[in-house]
Computed example of a mutant assay.
Amino acid sequence: MRDAVSVGRLVDHAPRSAVWTAWTDPALVEQWWVPAPEVCRVVEMDLRPGGSFRTEISPDGTAFGPHITGCFLAVDELERVVFTDALVAGWRPAPASFITASFTLRDHPDGTEYTATEMHRDAADRDQHEQLGFHEGWGIVTRQLAELVESRP
């Protein structure tokens, strides 16, 4: 797929259930979803196909602005979460679209294999996202997710 980019990571010594919890508990998502020192706030997270996913971002935790406004397409417990910003809650068309993202979890002998894949409308949108720092930013949040999960009992 020419319009897709992926970032993967092995989450050492963390079972898939722990990574799943970090992905599905809004209070935990807020701890890793945006690159630090930015701060995330989960406004809506209705984890079901057609459910709302809305986050906000702030440079300092005081004034928040829009980040993601989208709709979950698939939620397969312990395996996969897929959302898009092409739709909002209830499968309603969004005013603008940039990404569809898929996050997969697989067991690994040393922990959990975590892969984030973003698909774009076309190669131009993909290239724009890469220029905005996709690999660096998604690498950071994937590392933050791993650090959060690996540090929890």
Rank of each mutant, 00 (worst) to 15 (best):
A4G: 05
A4Q: 15
A4P: 00
V5P: 01
V5W: 00
V7E: 04
G8S: 15
R9V: 06
D12M: 06
D12F: 03
H13F: 07
P15T: 04
P15W: 01
A18H: 09
A22M: 11
A22S: 10
W23Y: 10
W23N: 03
T24E: 03
T24R: 03
D25M: 01
P26S: 08
A27G: 04
L28K: 11
E30N: 09
E30W: 09
Q31I: 02
Q31T: 07
W32V: 05
V34L: 12
A36N: 13
E38H: 14
V39D: 06
V39F: 08
R41N: 12
V43R: 14
D46G: 02
D46M: 01
L47E: 06
L47V: 13
G50Q: 07
G51P: 07
G51R: 04
S52N: 11
F53P: 00
F53Q: 00
R54C: 11
T55C: 14
E56W: 08
I57Y: 09
I57R: 11
S58H: 08
P59N: 12
D60W: 08
P66Q: 11
P66S: 13
T69S: 14
T69V: 15
C71A: 12
C71F: 02
F72T: 03
V75H: 02
E79V: 06
E79P: 00
V81S: 01
V82H: 02
F83V: 06
F83W: 15
L87T: 02
V88A: 08
A89V: 11
G90Y: 06
R92T: 13
P93G: 11
P93V: 09
A96L: 12
F98P: 00
F98D: 09
F98W: 10
I99Y: 02
I99A: 07
T100L: 07
A101W: 03
T104V: 13
R106V: 09
P109I: 04
P109G: 08
P109C: 05
D110R: 10
D110L: 08
D110M: 07
E113T: 00
E113V: 00
Y114Q: 04
Y114R: 00
A116S: 13
M119E: 14
A123T: 14
A123Y: 09
A124T: 13
R126D: 04
H129V: 09
H129K: 01
Q131F: 06
L132R: 05
L132D: 05
G133P: 09
F134D: 01
F134Q: 00
H135S: 12
W138Q: 01
I140H: 12
V141E: 02
T142C: 10
R143C: 08
Q144M: 12
L145K: 01
A146D: 05
A146C: 10
L148Q: 11
V149T: 08
E150N: 04
S151E: 14
R152Q: 14
P153M: 06
P153S: 13
